[in-house]
Amino acid sequence: MKPFPLDKVYQLIEPGPVVLLTTAFDGKPNVMTMSWHMMMEFVPPRIGCIVSSADHSFSALFKTGECVIAIPSADMAEKVVAIGNCSGRDTDKFAEIGLTALSAEEVSAPLIGECFANLECRVVDRDFVERHNLFVLDVVKAWHDPKQVAPKTFHHKGYGTFVIDGEEITLASKMP
């Protein structure tokens, strides 16, 4: 073993797949790229996610307590990176990037038509927002596109490097 730089540790344990987080505030939809998220519970599905207070989406998520986590396939990687490389403060990302905003049923934030899954979420815990920018979300409605069969997700490894899901294996498990 050799020492590893602390500022690169996140590249080793970056969570899985890159997702898009949509919000809507004052009738204006926005979308950001996000890869710092984690499952916290199975039922109800609970997700923790980090949204930097410097991000335009932070304010909308904090004020409305609602969002959509849209899961893109690897085919959308270039669009997802383009979304992450501009700000909703001065860009209509849906128009600029060419995304289809669809109405959600339970939240005001839009679904993204091109994504293979969309999760409507509500903030259920703000205890860690001030200290860590960590929002705890419950998924209140989930959607998938049955036309997108076996989509591959992609994972950020840092500094513009991504890994696309590979071979799927099944091992014996006692998990349901």
Score class of each variant (00 low, 15 high):
residue 72 P to R: 03
residue 36 W to K: 11
residue 6 L to K: 09
residue 80 V to N: 00
residue 151 P to V: 11
residue 136 V to W: 03
residue 24 A to S: 10
residue 64 T to S: 11
residue 130 E to H: 09
residue 32 M to I: 15
residue 169 I to G: 00
residue 106 E to N: 12
residue 157 K to G: 11
residue 11 Q to W: 06
residue 148 Q to A: 12
residue 132 H to V: 02
residue 78 E to Y: 09
residue 39 M to C: 09
residue 134 L to M: 10
residue 66 E to H: 08
residue 174 K to T: 15
residue 20 L to H: 04
residue 3 P to K: 11
residue 171 L to S: 02
residue 91 T to M: 13
residue 84 G to D: 05
residue 49 C to W: 05
residue 130 E to M: 10
residue 129 V to C: 06
residue 143 W to I: 12
residue 174 K to I: 13
residue 117 A to N: 07
residue 31 V to L: 12
residue 26 D to W: 03
residue 66 E to D: 10
residue 21 L to P: 01
residue 7 D to E: 15
residue 3 P to V: 04
residue 123 V to A: 09
residue 33 T to I: 05
residue 132 H to P: 00
residue 151 P to T: 13
residue 116 F to G: 01
residue 121 C to H: 11
residue 137 L to H: 00
residue 84 G to V: 04
residue 3 P to C: 07
residue 107 V to Q: 08
residue 133 N to V: 05
residue 89 R to G: 10
residue 75 D to C: 07
residue 28 K to W: 07
residue 46 R to C: 15
residue 139 V to Q: 11
residue 83 I to C: 05
residue 42 F to M: 14
residue 29 P to S: 04
residue 29 P to A: 06
residue 168 E to W: 01
residue 19 V to S: 07
residue 79 K to F: 05
residue 138 D to G: 07
residue 78 E to W: 07
residue 171 L to R: 03
residue 73 S to P: 08
residue 101 A to W: 06
residue 169 I to M: 03
residue 15 P to S: 04
residue 76 M to G: 05
residue 3 P to F: 03
residue 101 A to P: 15
residue 98 G to M: 03
residue 4 F to Y: 14
residue 46 R to S: 15
residue 28 K to P: 05
residue 57 S to G: 05
residue 17 P to A: 04
residue 170 T to V: 10
residue 106 E to A: 15
residue 78 E to Q: 14
residue 71 I to R: 02
residue 165 D to C: 09
residue 43 V to P: 06
residue 116 F to D: 00
residue 59 S to E: 14
residue 137 L to A: 01
residue 110 P to V: 12
residue 15 P to K: 01
residue 48 G to Q: 08
residue 100 T to R: 08
residue 118 N to W: 05
